[in-house]
């Protein structure tokens, strides 16, 4: 393919400096340290710590999806966003449903 064609392609899609990526990277570092602080620094009860770090993880996953993976970028209908959200719904159903169902031992015991 013509490599001089490259310059024409989508330069206007891209800012001159990768701000999005740098902000995303810094935020992910901050969130990771945040989790670390909750585990080591805060002296909250363990249930609270777990809730906090799971929430931070969700935020961090969203950074990857939106800032790095361009989940919202689309040329035509945005089916991928719907599919990824549906995948998260199924994943949640599998994890939460299994925990709920497999707690059956406490009934049996």
């Amino acid at each position: 393919m013509a490599s001089n064609d490259t310059t024409k392609h989508g330069q206007h899609h891209q800012e001159a400096f990768p701000w999005k990526h740098i902000i995303g990277f810094l935020l992910s570092l901050v969130l990771t340290f945040g989790s670390l602080w909750f585990v080591l620094g805060s002296h909250l009860p363990s249930q609270a710590v777990i809730s906090a770090i799971v929430i931070l993880a969700v935020f961090q996953a969203m950074i990857q999806l939106f800032l790095f993976m361009h989940l919202t970028e689309t040329f035509g209908p945005n089916y991928q966003q719907f599919l990824i959200f549906f995948a998260f719904f199924i994943a949640f159903t599998v994890v939460a449903g299994s925990i709920w169902i497999m707690a059956f031992k406490s009934y049996v015991a």
Binding site: W100, I101, A103, F104, Y107, V108
Partner: peptide
């Protein structure tokens, strides 16, 4: 019949 309990 696994016995997961009434709620489930």
């Amino acid at each position: 019949t696994m016995g997961a309990g009434v709620g489930v």
